[in-house]
């Protein structure tokens, strides 16, 4: 499993080569970045996380020495196929709306006997440790590839989460007065050369949401949607978003439902 570690170096070399192109003219630099992104699609190290997650899913673990195979992700115990396209959703057993990561924590507690605190430990991988959560997420989401997003709103708590998430998307705060909408509320904007999806429009929300989680070449890690929100808020100059917090679930509900109708296409690969 260490094989992927050398991959980022090769990509860094490509990035540096492209930086040289960028000096010539911005137009061609943008073209070259598009070519670079296209080249990345050929072989995605996310497959390593998917495989590890699939194996871990079946492994007997925790105080109860049980696997996650009977975890109910919303389509019934043991059904993984397509489950991600209907998340977040209301779960009657927990009497609350849960996103994928929150539900996996629930299953680790109820099936495997972990404490909630232990189940939530180390949700994001780094250079010195792998995250089991990101592996689970890679496996479960890969089982929804090609299936259309279909997040519901039949339960009042689902509607409430959506409305709260919408408000949070427009909530301006911090030292810089930034909201999610500051960067993701208009078409065809960018930060430096990075294109920004307009998440208030259907097309933008669909394209963005259906390509997370993703293998981030610049980090050599597979990143979950919880990570995506966490790092957006860091750059927004907010304090740290707590993993699997109510705000993270509400925002995910808002963004996931806005992507309804689009075919899910992740784990993807991004720069």
């Amino acid at each position: 499993m260490r094989g992927h570690r050398h991959e980022p170096n090769r990509f860094v070399a490509i990035v540096l080569a492209l930086a040289a192109f960028a000096v010539q003219a911005q137009g061609s630099a943008v073209d070259e970045i598009a070519k670079y992104r296209a080249a990345l699609q050929d072989g995605n190290p996310a497959e390593l996380w998917e495989a590890r997650g699939a194996a871990l899913w079946k492994e007997k673990r925790g105080p109860k020495n049980a696997s996650l195979e009977q975890c109910d992700l919303g389509r019934g115990a043991g059904v993984v196929k397509g489950a991600y396209t209907e998340l977040p959703r209301y779960f009657a057993d927990a009497d609350r709306v849960m996103d994928l990561e929150t539900r996996i924590v629930w299953c680790m507690v109820t099936l495997q006997g972990y404490t909630e605190a232990d189940a939530k430990k180390g949700p994001f991988g780094g250079p010195d440790r792998k995250s089991d959560m990101e592996a689970y997420v890679a496996f479960v989401t890969s089982e929804s590839r090609g299936i259309r997003m279909n997040v519901g709103q039949s339960h009042p708590k689902e509607l409430e989460a959506y409305r709260l998430g919408e408000k949070m998307f427009y909530f301006r705060g911090g030292t810089h007065d930034f909201a999610c909408a500051t960067c993701h509320g208009e078409d065809a904007k960018r930060i430096r050369l990075q294109d920004l999806p307009n998440l208030t429009q259907k097309a933008g929300a669909q394209k963005a949401y259906t390509t997370w989680p993703a293998y981030r070449v610049s980090q050599g890690e597979l990143r979950s949607f919880q990570w995506r929100l966490n790092d957006c808020f860091r750059q927004q100059r907010f304090p740290e978003l707590i993993f699997a917090s109510d705000a993270s679930i509400a925002l995910t509900m808002f963004l996931a439902r806005n992507a309804n109708g689009a075919a899910f296409d992740a784990p993807a690969i991004k720069r």
Binding site: M168, F233, E240, L241
Partner: peptide, 12 residues
């Protein structure tokens, strides 16, 4: 939403 946000972040 403002109240839920406050409960969903920790200082860092």
């Amino acid at each position: 939403a403002a109240a839920v946000l406050k409960a969903s972040f920790r200082e860092q």
